[in-house]
Design a protein around this nucleic acid. Structure first.
Length: 599
RNA sequence: GGCCCCGUAGUUCAACGGAUAGAAUGGAAGUUUCCUAAACUUUAGAUACAGGUUCGAUUCCUGUCGGGGCUACCA
């Protein structure tokens, strides 16, 4: 029995058309899709593109191709034509063979690394002056999932994090701590380190605003001018210069505060279930960025102004000029990113560098690519910005600059609490131990959060509704987890050891529609993974998994699995359930979502 | 002002240029001597607007109207 009917059909179509008309049709131009479920058939060939070549009406064309294909390929059991669509039905024996070949495959849909070219995926990219918030959650989940999906498609992936640990914003929280901190530590304050430092950043902005208000009132300055002249801002800039000169006292405080932050971030990452293969720090890359800029200046690619600032002229690329070094010689965000890109390229020589960064930075990445191109860097074209939209909450918008943020830790606490409350109300966990309960509430709460966010197309702005995400009905993570737990329960009841020895092939004639629908859906999983990888879209996996669970429930409802008089059919169904569970497990794994054995 | 992204049932999301625009949720009505009812079944309900491109447009192009973002010597 052939293993790849799509390919065989497409090749046969190409040959048939060539014999008929003498014209070559490439495989990419043959539109063969899975038949939509409201029509009879397994694969559908769209024949409209061939009507001019074959010079027949769409219906005649489809009929001609159907006859020729059925005669040529044994696995095609029948065909029929609706308008210009040729629906092909495969022999049930093909689907049974598919089940037999995959039923004990624990890695169904997940390939081992087969592509030697590296992909580097950067995500998270926090600033050390602020705790992680809801936007970071979407970022982390997307990045982690995309990395796993690329891996499942056979690519070698390195997950990296780039920590923004230097710059004027970091100096602001340092300055506030130096002025108002009185030697406070996370321990004495009773706060996570990242929260403590974040509070000083907020404190700086508050004190600065007070100074600005005074200047505006007393000297009649504009808000913008007042901000620049305010003593605190001047001090922050002085601190940045001291930092770049490696002033020992400044460096000591900087290191101490950063260590607090990293400890806090680690706890949040661990809880979120994400990890990195390598962490870059901008304090290590900005000098390389400066070097690249100075090199470009020497070669005459970049321009220096009278005040000493260095710029890239991008008007030939339809962009404005871009500052790369300030007049005082300190570097900006773009400078750091130039250095980071170079370092990353030197480290891994990746064929592709994916940056998971919010869409408000679309312009930044446009400029980054073009500056690198101007500098003659070969990797400029391999940079891919995976741009995602904002996450909003039902209560309204989140704006980190205005202090309206949803803290990542708080949100995860919330999800855990809701998972506990909902589960306890249903009274399903009474026989669980305390540890098992804690574990389960974590898995459900995080599953709800992850699934809700990942099922949406990354580039779209989205609305996250915590209450709706944790609903056990509908297109949610907990629904999928629940379906998985039920299948596992069935398999435990049946006794899995009995399953290993049986032949899952009943007489094809004994298989009913529900079983066939489920089997065919499962068949599509590897294809879905491949699509998700090429489009960098976890949403594809999420929506497929939901479809699978729903289909399983319908199958399960109509086909009694254990109490079936016909033993062969029943065991065949158990095999089908087993492959379904495995597929849910693998699919959720690609989203970074755990599935519990019981719930 | 200029540039970019987005406008789909009441709501949250789907739909390589393909068939009768799918789900879920909320609304209405049902199903439990049964292996997890956190399930299943039935039902009403949508492509912002106007043109164009073609066998065919939610999808591509143009314009209008809405929403968001960017346009920093912040990151």
């Amino acid at each position: 029995m052939p293993v790849n009917p799509e390919k065989r059909i497409a090749e046969a179509v190409s040959e048939i058309i060539f014999q008929e008309s003498g014209q070559h049709v490439t495989l990419e131009n043959i539109d063969l899709q899975r038949t939509r479920k409201e029509f009879e058939g397994d694969f559908t060939l769209v024949v409209f593109p061939f009507v001019k070549i074959i010079r027949k009406s769409p219906e005649q064309c489809a009929d001609f191709l159907g006859q020729a294909l059925a005669a040529r390929l044994g696995e095609i059991a029948s065909y029929h034509v609706i308008k210009g669509f040729l629906n092909l039905t495969l022999d049930p024996a093909f689907w049974l063979e598919f089940l037999r070949s995959q039923m004990n495959n624990a890695t169904f849909g997940v390939q081992p690394v087969s592509d030697r070219s590296q992909v580097v995926v950067e995500f998270s990219s926090p600033n050390t002056n602020k705790p992680l918030h809801l936007g970071h959650i979407r970022n982390n989940l997307l990045g982690y999932s995309v990395a796993r999906i690329l891996e499942a498609a056979g690519q070698k992936v390195t997950k990296v994090n780039l920590v923004n640990d230097r710059g004027i914003h970091i100096c602001k929280s340092m300055l506030a701590y130096m002025k108002f901190g009185k030697g406070e530590t996370p321990e004495t304050a009773g706060k996570k380190g990242d929260k403590l430092v974040g509070d000083y950043y907020v404190r700086f902005e508050k004190e600065l605003q007070a100074e600005v208000n005074t200047l505006v009132q007393e000297k009649g300055l504009s808000g913008e001018a007042a901000r620049k002249q305010a003593p605190l801002m001047q001090e922050a800039q002085a601190l940045l210069r001291k930092w770049e000169l490696r002033d020992p006292e400044t460096i000591e405080i900087w290191e101490r505060m950063n260590a607090w932050v990293y400890k806090g971030f680690d706890a949040t990452y661990r809880r979120m279930g994400v990890s990195f293969d390598k962490i870059y720090y901008e304090s290590d890359t900005y000098l390389l960025g400066k070097e690249l800029v100075l090199e470009g200046l020497n070669k005459g690619i970049l321009q220096q102004k009278e005040d000493g600032s260095v710029w890239a002229e991008l008007s030939d690329e339809n962009l404005d000029e871009k500052l790369l070094l300030r007049a005082d010689g300190t570097s900006v965000y773009m400078t750091q990113d130039l250095g980071t890109a170079q370092l990353r390229y030197d480290d891994f020589k990746p064929g592709k560098m994916v940056y998971v960064v919010g869409n408000e930075q679309n312009h930044h990445f446009d400029v980054l690519r073009k500056v690198l191109k101007k500098l003659g860097k070969p990797y400029a074209e391999s940079i891919f910005h995976l741009s995602y939209g904002m996450v909003e909450l039902p209560e309204g918008k989140m704006k980190s600059r205005e202090g309206i943020v949803v803290d990542a830790d708080d949100l995860m606490d919330d999800m855990f609490g809701t998972a506990r409350k909902t589960t306890e109300e249903l009274g399903k966990t009474q026989e669980f131990s305390e540890e098992e309960k804690e574990r389960l509430y974590h898995v459900i709460g995080m599953g709800a959060l992850k699934y809700f966010i990942l099922k949406v197309d990354p580039k779209k702005n989205m609305l996250f509704n915590p209450a709706e995400s944790i609903d056990f009905n509908g297109n949610t993570g907990p629904f999928i987890q629940y379906t998985y737990a039920r299948i596992r329960s069935i398999l435990r009841t049946a006794g899995t050891e009995r399953l290993e020895a049986i032949d899952p092939r009943p007489d094809p004639g004994l298989i009913n529609d529900k079983e066939l629908v489920l089997l065919k859906l499962l068949y599509g999983f590897p294809q879905v993974v491949a699509e998700a990888a090429s489009e960098l879209s976890p949403a594809k996996i999420a929506n497929f998994s939901y479809e699978l669970c729903k289909t399983f429930n319908q199958f399960y409802h109509e086909c009694s699995i254990l109490n079936e008089p016909d033993v062969v059919i029943s065991e065949f169904r158990l095999k089908l359930a087993q492959l379904t569970a495995q597929t849910i497990h693998n699919g959720m794994g690609l989203l970074g979502i755990d599935v519990p054995e019981r719930m």
